[in-house]
Amino acid sequence: MTRIAVFGTGIMGAPIARNLAAAGHDVVVWNRSFDKAAALAGPGITPVRNARDAARGADAAILMVSTGAVCDALLFGDDGIAEALPRGSTVVVMSSIPVETARTEAARLADAGIDYVDAPVSGGERGAVAGTLTIMAGGTADVVAKVAEWLAPVGRVTHVGPVGSGQLAKLANQLIVGVTIGAVAEALLLVEAGGGDAEAVHRALQGGFADSTIWRQHGERMIRGDFQPGAHATVQLKDLDTSTGLAGSLGLELPFAGLARDLYAKMCEGPRAALDHSALYLELAERRNG
């Protein structure tokens, strides 16, 4: 049994904590809004109000919070958990954060004798609940192998390189997701505007070259008009901002990513910011109607 502290118990963090506890780990949970952590109280899960209390004695600390700045503050800010974590413990950042932020955090924790893995995920709420997340892990091979054993109830861990590589893989993932959601939305709008049956076309393209998880899951969401967030549009925008910003610093031009970023930015100016990222469909439909 491993003692694991989970920081951030929202859409993704809560099912991750449940799956770890169900596998027999001793799980302590903390969330900025304590009510979300308290709702997880039960066999194998102990909610605490103070982040440092969660960190004390933990073998691993999993961070599933919103941004790199929040990760930095949680680790090193006032009452930061880095000072409470034992030497030899491991910080696993499952949040999507900038590559350089991950590398800097790892260096600072190494000075305290604490290992670090950046391990962002793909699979959304469904994958978190089912324990089938794709986990892209950056770090040393031995530390990632250890973390992979702990995270087996959460999903499949793939070691993609040194610290920061997990975030690079996640940016690649989010670029593909953001652009593909736009393509799926446009395809369905084309079918609907032309008088076709969107549901029939959705079924017909499954198994062909255009098929994908996004076509199946988000295409279905668009057809049903179900945009309750499994992954927030604001998070998609944040990751596209990070990927296009990194590309610019490397001298790369990514026109499709840039267009997707601009569309999500427009979407997130209004109330649709609170919706699932597949609600880009609504933004594009409004442009047609306008």
Rank of each mutant, 00 (worst) to 15 (best):
I4H: 03
G8P: 13
P15A: 04
A17Q: 14
R18K: 13
L20T: 02
L20N: 04
D26L: 05
V28K: 13
F34G: 00
L40P: 00
A55F: 05
A55W: 04
R56K: 10
A61L: 12
I62K: 13
L63K: 10
C71L: 11
D72I: 06
G77S: 08
D78N: 11
D79C: 09
I81G: 03
A84Y: 11
S96C: 11
T101K: 10
T104Y: 04
R108A: 13
A112R: 08
I114E: 00
Y116C: 09
P120D: 01
G131F: 14
T132M: 05
L133I: 07
T134E: 11
V147Q: 04
P153C: 09
T158C: 14
G166R: 07
Q174R: 07
V177D: 00
V177I: 13
G182A: 00
A185I: 00
E186I: 00
A187C: 06
L189Q: 03
L190M: 09
V191F: 02
E192V: 01
A198E: 04
A200C: 05
V201I: 15
E220H: 15
I223M: 07
A231K: 01
A231R: 03
A233Y: 09
S243Y: 08
G245Q: 12
G245S: 10
G248Q: 15
L250M: 12
L252F: 10
E253N: 12
P255W: 02
A260M: 01
Y264I: 13
M267E: 09
C268G: 03
G270W: 04
A273T: 05
A279I: 09
A285I: 01
